[in-house]
Amino acid sequence: MHRRLFLTSMAALVAAGPLRAESFEVTLTEAEWRAKLSKAQFAVLRKADTERVGSSPLNAEHRKGVFSCAGCDLAVYRSEDKFESGTGWPSFTQPIKGAVGTKPDNSLFTTRTEVHCRRCGGHLGHVFDDGPKPTGKRYCMNGVAMNFTAA
């Protein structure tokens, strides 16, 4: 019986056609991304890795300015939305409107919400519902996935 269910499920997947990857404005081959990004940036932005806790200089960045995607330079967060979460990663209450996308992340035996750059699809981090007012959100980002430009 289990074999029949498996075969039926596989037939339905084949009939549905190939899985389609999301398309983004900025698309590069894996080789081009590797050439453009550092090893750490590639691991986070393109392979959804997580930087080591407390390792990003952006965690201690307190100047006025803008945080942008290290993959395509799209402005994704403003300094006035940054807060000290105590997690060891740069955290924000909200992104710049229209700058990021989200999708379910079912890794690590739980469901989280992944945050990615809407222009290049680069993995930035995750968003949680335990942030401060006014949004109640904590956008917990990998610093290596962003650059900072002071205003």
Rank of each mutant, 00 (worst) to 15 (best):
17 G>H: 14
80 E>K: 11
76 V>G: 00
137 K>A: 08
6 F>E: 10
30 E>M: 03
34 R>G: 01
120 C>D: 08
39 K>E: 14
82 K>I: 12
66 V>P: 01
96 I>K: 01
74 L>E: 10
8 T>C: 07
131 G>P: 00
41 Q>G: 08
8 T>Y: 11
38 S>L: 13
114 E>Y: 07
98 G>T: 11
141 M>H: 03
131 G>D: 11
93 T>A: 00
142 N>I: 06
123 H>I: 08
87 T>H: 11
30 E>C: 02
133 K>A: 15
4 R>Q: 12
91 S>M: 04
125 G>S: 05
35 A>G: 09
88 G>I: 09
141 M>N: 00
63 R>F: 01
142 N>G: 05
122 G>L: 04
111 T>G: 00
124 L>A: 03
6 F>K: 04
122 G>I: 09
119 R>W: 07
117 C>K: 04
71 G>I: 13
72 C>H: 06
100 V>N: 05
142 N>E: 06
66 V>D: 01
115 V>C: 06
148 F>G: 01
121 G>E: 03
125 G>H: 04
69 C>S: 07
72 C>M: 13
53 V>W: 03
46 R>Y: 01
107 S>F: 08
144 V>T: 01
29 T>S: 15
144 V>R: 00
89 W>N: 09
136 G>V: 12
49 D>L: 03
146 M>F: 05
93 T>D: 01
128 F>H: 00
62 H>Y: 05
96 I>T: 05
47 K>L: 12
14 V>C: 05
129 D>W: 09
143 G>E: 02
13 L>V: 14
61 E>V: 10
88 G>L: 12
121 G>H: 07
105 D>L: 05
123 H>W: 11
71 G>P: 09
34 R>I: 13
35 A>T: 09
94 Q>R: 15
54 G>V: 11
23 S>C: 02
99 A>M: 10
69 C>M: 06
101 G>P: 00
40 A>F: 04
49 D>F: 02
12 A>L: 15
53 V>K: 14
41 Q>H: 08
86 G>V: 03
1 M>W: 12
139 Y>H: 15
58 L>P: 02
66 V>I: 14
60 A>S: 09
99 A>L: 10
65 G>P: 02
58 L>F: 07
24 F>S: 01
129 D>Y: 10
134 P>R: 11
17 G>F: 14
140 C>L: 05
20 R>I: 13
31 A>R: 09
124 L>Q: 04
